[in-house]
Simulated scan of single mutants.
Amino acid sequence: MIDLDITFFIQLVNFLIIWMVLSLVLYRPIRGIIKKRSDYMVGQVSSIEKFNAQAVAKVKDYEVALDAARKTGLDERNRLKVEAQAHETEIVGNAGRDAASKISAARAEIESQVKKAMQSLQSEVDKMAKKATDKILA
């Protein structure tokens, strides 16, 4: 059976004093440090979440800007392509007209040279025919 004598009460008082001293010297500072660390971690987690949200927003903004730049580039490319095709058509048309005028000028020159040659040959043919008839008749 338990005897409740004075030592029990002394041990109880001793336990309470040690418990209070340990609470003041050890447990409260440790709880304070743990609370500070917990608050710091909560702050860091919220800071990380905020940073991640900003990063996601910046990536979305970048993608939107990139899509806009791609669209602008594609529009510019198509516009330049149309301009180039029009310019090519104009150059080909001018070259065709120049070639046609040169061909017609060359044909006209060839025709005049053919006429001159025909006239020259005709006069020579007449001379040769006259010589041939003179030889045959003589």
Rank of each mutant, 00 (worst) to 15 (best):
K131C: 09
V59C: 04
K131E: 15
V45F: 09
I110D: 13
L24S: 09
A106K: 02
L4K: 08
I103S: 11
D3T: 12
K71D: 07
E111C: 01
A68Q: 10
A132W: 02
I33S: 07
D126Y: 01
L74F: 03
S112A: 15
N78D: 15
K36Y: 06
Q122R: 14
S120I: 04
L74K: 06
K58V: 07
R79H: 09
L121C: 11
V42G: 06
V56Q: 04
D39L: 03
K50D: 02
R79A: 10
A95T: 12
T89R: 14
F15I: 03
S112N: 13
N94Q: 15
K127P: 02
K36L: 08
A95S: 15
K35L: 13
R77C: 09
M20V: 12
D3P: 02
A99H: 12
S104W: 01
T133D: 15
D61H: 04
S120H: 05
L137V: 11
G43Y: 02
L22V: 05
A84F: 03
A100G: 01
A95D: 14
I91S: 13
I34M: 03
L137M: 14
S104C: 06
V25Q: 06
V64R: 00
S47K: 08
M128E: 04
L16T: 01
R97W: 01
I48Y: 07
K50Y: 01
I18D: 10
R31A: 11
G73M: 00
V82I: 03
D75P: 00
E63F: 01
D126R: 04
S47G: 11
Q44G: 11
E76V: 04
Q113C: 11
D5Y: 02
I110G: 14
I48C: 05
I48L: 09
I110H: 12
E111G: 11
K135T: 12
V21R: 02
Y62V: 03
I48K: 08
E111P: 10
I91A: 14
R31S: 11
R107T: 10
T7D: 14
T89C: 15
R28G: 04
L4T: 05
S120M: 12
I33D: 04
I91P: 03
D98I: 00
I30Y: 01
A57Q: 02
